[in-house]
Design a protein around this nucleic acid. Structure first.
Length: 573
RNA sequence: GGACCCGUGGCCUAGCCCGGAUAAGGCACCGGCUUUCUAAGCCGAGGAUCGAGGGUUCGAAUCCCUCCGGGUCCGCCA
């Protein structure tokens, strides 16, 4: 039975407000709740809108409204100040309910009720031509965090990677891998196949431009491929599988995995594209130009130099956007809501996709857009050799974390140090990306990406490790009386903990993982203050017992918030 | 030519959707706190005309308009 203590507080406040207003014959107006400065109360709302509606001073309304509030289970009292009504939440009741919720739901505190709505979340989907670089790093991290949050919120979620294993770039890759020797392409910087195969792709691109004979060979392959040569399509797909296997190892190390993969080649081989082409070409809006079908999207809000959206080439072969439509129709046969995590450069294309689906009378997907990570000197570019790969970043993060562990915990055995370093390094990297709103651009700087203090993953993990440390030494939980939690800092901590379920629901509904990051930071921060102000193990037995329950609740909340972000929660650091 | 995204102390970010009571954190810098549950912590100090200008409003970082700066996109590529 999931519980949401803060939601109960809000619901009660709302109903008390309605009753108070009714008793004064004040029209019920929905005014948003805010959280005022602690010295004023726990919840508040301004009476300015009432004032305007009733042509009275907000101060006077507030001072009449406040006394009309009756006490509730949570709401202990109301007072008026400066046109606001401030409500005070009873600390003991909130502590009782919050700790009981954690006690009853255990490690699952914060998890939402099971939802019916099946969500298919597509993310990452980088072209399998080489290692994933940091410029794209936000996609898997945002995508995986969002998947975790949606699942925790109660949704059945399937994550999927669209493997773009067709098209010219893959034909080039295939040509390179099958025709070039290791001596021709030079050495790779790693044994993983995403790294070892990249040089073939780079060399193939170079030769195709410079050498006319190579260009002809590649063109011939492209013609065979576009002619529907199934054998060739499979061979090309196999190359992409090899590259992908390398990238997946990297993703696995940062705790990103997928429930499924969708191969674009399969879409083609299974003949799912022509029916879609037909449907599109038969739309009333479809036009023809030199044998190529298109839809002019200008009437549908698409603006710019070119508003034609092409369905086919003049030779009748399909284009990527058309295949994407076919893919989405397939998606919708398997889910209720389709979400895709996309780089900001795909905004227009996504609008076109939605428009085309709308014209077909089909459902439309949602998207979460992010800006690419750039280097201080500009965008990452494989061609200009200006790249930091995910593998580089991971190695550096873990190695710096190991230095930290060595200096902070010299007494630990080497293997344990390495374990903690991996945990901290990976978490730092994920947290630094997920804590920022996706649409803000991030400039990659080592010193920021690998900062282990302040608002960073280790800060959160450290707070979690501290809770575990206390609980370990305590030996076990005991029966407790929540009324023994009388310190203001205990109340602050309780209040934050009570908000986990509500925060999860909001972050899931808004598709905003960074809200969980902010929440986790607040929890850790409030716990650190509690840690300073309220000794646990040495407190008098009744207080000790109550504080232990609070520490355990904090542990659960941190663990679950960290889990939602894909950050490991170490028991010691 | 057009569309979209971003612009908050020296640096990075939250708040913006849903307008409210002195704009909240982190980094960096300076000064403190460890016989007490791990100092990856805590406390204190300084530092912001919330890009600029108009408008709406009793009230604007938040909504509207214009402009400036940065980014992205407008292929019979994917």
């Amino acid at each position: 039975m999931p519980r949401d203590p803060w939601r109960e507080v809000l619901d009660e406040a709302e109903s008390l407000r309605t009753r108070a207003a009714l008793s004064l014959k004040i029209p019920p107006i929905s005014v948003p709740w805010e959280e005022p400065d602690e010295s004023l109360g726990d919840l508040a709302f301004g009476c300015f809108v009432y004032g305007k509606r009733m042509l009275q001073a907000p101060e006077s309304i507030a001072s009449r409204l406040a006394p009309a509030f009756s006490k509730g289970r949570f709401i202990a009292g109301a007072s008026a100040a400066g046109g606001y009504v401030n409500l005070r939440v009873d600390a003991t009741t909130l502590a009782t309910e919050t700790l009981r919720a954690v006690g009853e739901t255990g490690e699952t505190y914060g998890r939402g009720d099971p939802q019916k709505e099946r969500i298919l979340l597509e993310h990452t989907s980088v072209n399998p031509t080489g290692p994933i670089h940091v410029g794209r790093a936000r996609n898997p991290i945002i995508g995986d965090s969002l998947a975790r949050i949606l699942r925790f919120a109660g949704h059945p979620v399937t994550t999927e990677y669209l493997v773009n294993d067709v098209g010219k770039q893959m034909v080039l890759m295939y040509w390179g891998v099958t025709r070039l020797t290791p001596e021709q392409v030079g050495p790779a910087d790693s044994e993983k196949e995403d790294h070892t195969l990249l040089p073939y792709y780079v060399k193939a691109n170079e030769l195709a431009e410079k050498d006319a004979r190579v260009g002809q060979e590649v063109d011939a392959l492209i013609r065979r491929f576009e002619g529907g040569d199934a054998e060739l399509t499979r061979e090309i797909s196999n190359v992409s599988r090899r590259v992908l296997s390398g990238s997946l190892q990297t993703l696995e190390r940062i705790r990103v995995g997928f429930d499924g993969f969708f191969w674009e080649s399969e879409l083609i081989l299974q003949g799912k594209v022509p029916p879609v082409v037909n449907r599109l070409a038969n739309l009333p809006d479809a036009r023809q130009e030199n044998g190529a079908y298109f839809i002019d999207m200008a009437p549908y809000g698409v603006k710019g130099r070119e508003t034609k959206w092409f369905i086919t080439k003049s030779d009748g072969t399909s284009l990527y956007p058309t295949r994407d439509i076919a893919y989405h129709l397939d998606k919708f046969s398997r889910c209720d809501v389709a979400i895709t995590v996309l780089g900001e450069n795909h905004r227009l294309e996504f609008e076109q996709l939605r428009t085309a689906l709308r014209l077909l009378g089909e459902r439309e997907p949602e998207a979460v857009f992010y800006s690419y990570v750039v280097l201080p000197e500009g965008a990452m570019s494989a061609r200009r050799g200006r790249v930091v790969t995910m593998d580089d970043l991971i190695e550096e993060a873990v190695s710096r974390a190991l230095d930290e562990v060595r200096s902070r915990r010299p007494e630990l055995p080497e293997a344990r140090m390495r374990e903690i370093a991996e945990t901290v390094g990976i978490a730092s990297l994920r947290y630094n990306i997920v804590r920022v709103q996706p649409e803000k651009k991030i400039t990659f700087r080592w010193e920021e990406a690998l900062n282990f203090e302040g608002n960073s993953a280790p800060f959160l993990q450290y707070a979690h490790a501290r809770t575990c440390g206390i609980l370990n030494k305590a030996g076990g939980l005991e029966p407790y009386d929540p009324a023994r939690l009388t310190h203001p800092q205990e109340a602050r901590l309780v209040k934050v903990l009570s908000k986990l379920p509500n925060t999860v629901q909001r972050a899931a509904a808004d598709r905003r993982p960074h809200e969980i990051a902010g929440f986790a930071y607040t929890v850790a921060s409030q716990f650190n203050l509690f840690y300073r102000d309220c000794p646990v193990l040495t407190a008098d037995p009744p207080i000790r017992a109550a504080r232990l329950a609070l520490v355990d609740a904090t542990r659960v909340v941190l663990q679950n918030a960290l889990e939602c972000l894909g950050l490991p929660a170490p028991r010691e650091m």
